[in-house]
């Protein structure tokens, strides 16, 4: 995306945010436009971070409801887009922690665990489907921080500067964190690939 069209998007967002501030709660026109523009991107990021469509849908709803309640407090120190992503990432992090705690509790009381806390390697399949499954499996094996930064870069397509804004860290630290996450992704992916080959071999 070139700088000019990026600036146009930022201006449009700023107008819509101003519209929200003036119109909400009585009129949701500007809010609806922002929602339509970013819902897909936010849902997709939540889905990669949480690995579950139901959870992602709820996280996405929570993020936009938070926008509804907090947009009056948005001062424009960052762009609306990075502010929204920060909200969504925080919600996903909290949800993941709650899910992990719930799983731990279930294990402690010996409840039937439907889904294992440790993602299982995908069964041997062919072609693209197997590849997609291995990639998904790899994402779920990463730490929250790693999954977050990979999702922001490759799913949400944020620039390094935007990511640095969302994460609240310096640009150089963002780049380093992303690099480490990519390296780890590659190594976990390679392990998964080997496991798959071994399964296929039996």
């Amino acid at each position: 995306m070139n700088e000019e069209s990026n600036n146009e998007i930022l201006d449009e967002d700023a107008d819509l945010v101003a519209g929200c501030k003036a119109e909400l709660p009585a009129d949701t026109t500007s809010y609806y436009e922002l929602l339509s523009k970013y819902e897909g991107m936010i849902y997709s990021t939540c889905l990669r971070m949480l690995g579950d469509s139901q959870e992602a849908e709820e996280a996405c709803q929570d993020a936009f409801l938070r926008v509804f309640h907090k947009v009056h407090q948005f001062e424009g120190r960052s762009t609306f887009k990075t502010w929204l992503f920060r909200i969504a990432c925080n919600i996903c992090m909290t949800r993941r922690k709650k899910l992990a705690m719930k799983r731990e509790r279930d294990q402690l009381v010996g409840a039937d665990i439907v889904q294992s806390s440790e993602p299982q390697p995908p069964a041997a399949k062919r072609g693209e489907e197997a590849q997609a499954e291995t990639v998904n499996h790899t994402l779920q094996k990463l730490s929250e921080e790693e999954r977050e930064i990979i999702s922001l870069r490759f799913v949400s397509d944020l620039s390094l500067a935007e990511m640095s804004d969302v994460l609240g860290i310096k640009l150089s630290a963002t780049k380093m964190r992303l690099y480490r996450a990519m390296e780890r992704f590659k190594s976990v992916y390679a392990e998964g690939d080997i496991a798959k080959l071994q399964q296929g071999g039996h």
Binding site: Y32, L35, S36, E39, G40, M41, Y43, S44, C60
Partner: peptide
């Protein structure tokens, strides 16, 4: 990656 907004979710 499903990046399109979904009318149902919206």
């Amino acid at each position: 990656f499903e990046m399109e907004s979904s009318p149902q979710r919206i």
